[in-house]
């Protein structure tokens, strides 16, 4: 038994016949072959699978692909545009905010959404924003620093561009 789902993923319209039970994380990874989105826990505790739906970060292991029919999905693959890294990606590199890299896509999507909403977050606000995401490698300190780097970078860029 399959149903057709159509949605916008990273700006492109996609349409596929899938089982209703297919989780969004599998639709993205298996059907669309966008493997940047990971899964780590089954129970929506780890945040490795975070993508954005209509701009909001959500855990794609706990949403059906069918529920996204007609919506806009953005994955980590959307961050780099025409060879230009998103400042949040640059920040993670600059501040050594990743080690094994497995949580990184979810962290990037979560913190990008944070900055879109709150361009100048405090350290505590950053920690709250990523509190649904587990990183086993970094102890979070450098992730906080990376988000601050991106915030400052964006502010500096905005100032220069007046």
């Amino acid at each position: 038994m399959t149903i057709n789902v159509s949605m916008t993923v990273n700006g492109a319209q996609v349409s596929h016949d899938i089982e209703p039970r297919m989780l969004l994380v599998h639709f993205v990874r298996e059907t669309l072959e966008l493997t940047g989105t990971h899964w780590g826990c089954d129970t929506s505790n780890c945040g490795a699978c975070v993508v954005r739906i209509d701009g909001q970060p959500v855990k794609s292991c706990t949403i059906l692909a069918a529920m996204c029919d007609g919506h806009e999905v953005a994955t980590v693959e959307s961050l780099e545009v025409e060879g230009q890294l998103d400042p949040i990606q640059m920040g993670f590199h600059e501040r050594h905010a990743l080690q094994c890299g497995f949580c990184t896509p979810g962290m990037l999507m979560t913190t990008r959404a944070l900055l879109d909403e709150n361009p100048d977050p405090t350290d505590h606000e950053i920690r709250v924003a990523i509190s649904g995401a587990i990183c086993r490698c970094t102890g979070y300190k450098n992730i906080v620093s990376a988000v601050r780097w991106a915030a400052e970078h964006e502010a500096a860029t905005a100032n220069r561009e007046g």
Binding site: T35, L85, F92, H93, G101, T104
Partner: peptide, 11 residues
């Protein structure tokens, strides 16, 4: 980092 920040690691 170059591959991981782009979601291009191969796990």
């Amino acid at each position: 980092d170059a591959r991981f920040i782009r979601g291009q690691g191969t796990y």
